Simulated scan of single mutants.
Amino acid sequence: MRASVFVLFFLLLGGCAGADNNPGDLPYKYWRLGFLAPDYMEVWVETAHAEDIRGKTFFHVGSGIVAVRTPPEEKGNPAGWGKRFGWGAGRHVNGADLPRRIYVRWQSMAEPQTYRVILDIPERARQLMSERLAPPCPASEYREALTLGLAPGGVVRGWVMSTCGRPIEVLRAQAEIEPKGPYEGTSQGSHRPLSETSKAYIEKHGIPYGSW
């Protein structure tokens, strides 16, 4: 029942994105949604949807493996997020105005567990994404990227960033377990497998819950 409510929430948000490529008040052509995970804590995004400030919904704006480091010889450090990292694996959300809400369902392959969450994007994030940088980055004049960090335990962190400078944290959230399991119950509870490097690290060192 709760799973159905999640789906209906996005279907009733106000409208689906169509062929309209007008970004409204967006000061650049499009913004980017990216995903990352701590070292070795591999994540597979099953799907992500976004609603912009005009009430339009953009379905399936994210899927697949997220950006994650798996250094050999256990040289990585999965505790915490660090001060600098990239935009994450993702894509541009074409035709969208600034983000209002984002829904994500993903597999935390390190546990394994499947989570889902609806994120209310704070006004501060939109303000930061609208401000022209002074001085601008060599490749961008705005903070055009929204990056979501997905960690074991359903921990979510969000940052906005440009092509230079440090990420600016704009949200923290706790996801809930997807009651249907991976792939909405179509895989009989089977999650995607970890890489051998990540599996070996976790078997030896465990998962640093509470560090994110």
Rank of each mutant, 00 (worst) to 15 (best):
V104R: 05
Q188H: 15
A200M: 12
L11E: 15
P135S: 01
I121C: 02
V43R: 03
C137K: 07
W212A: 02
K29C: 10
G90F: 07
R126P: 01
G154N: 07
S63E: 11
V45F: 13
G24H: 09
W31N: 05
G62Q: 06
Q127W: 03
P122V: 08
G165K: 09
V66D: 03
G90T: 11
G86A: 07
S130Q: 12
G95D: 06
R132P: 06
K180P: 05
L171W: 10
S130R: 15
Y142T: 02
M41V: 01
L98Y: 08
A200D: 09
A17H: 12
W159S: 02
R101W: 13
R132F: 07
R157S: 14
A145D: 07
I202F: 03
H191W: 15
P112Y: 02
M161P: 05
Q188C: 12
D97L: 03
E111Q: 09
D25I: 12
A110E: 04
E178W: 00
G18W: 09
V43E: 02
V45M: 00
Y201C: 06
L194F: 00
W106Y: 05
L171S: 10
V104N: 07
P38A: 00
G86N: 11
I202D: 04
P179D: 04
E169Y: 02
R91P: 01
G154A: 10
Y183E: 14
Q188S: 14
E184N: 13
H92P: 09
D52H: 11
F58C: 07
A37E: 04
L33I: 04
A175E: 06
W81P: 07
E111V: 02
D39P: 06
L194C: 05
E73I: 12
R101L: 14
A79W: 05
M41H: 00
Y201F: 07
I177W: 12
D97W: 03
G189P: 14
P23E: 04
E131Y: 07
P72S: 12
L146G: 05
V7Y: 15
W106M: 01
Y183A: 14
W44D: 03
R192F: 11
E196N: 08
C137L: 10
L8P: 10
P193F: 00
L11Q: 15
P112Q: 00
W212Y: 08
A50M: 15
W159Q: 00
K199N: 12
F9L: 13
A67P: 11
E42N: 06
P135N: 08
I65P: 08
E111P: 03
V93W: 08
R2Y: 14
G55L: 14
R126N: 09
A17D: 00
R101S: 11
Q107L: 06
Y115A: 14
D120N: 12
G76I: 06
T114H: 07
D20K: 13
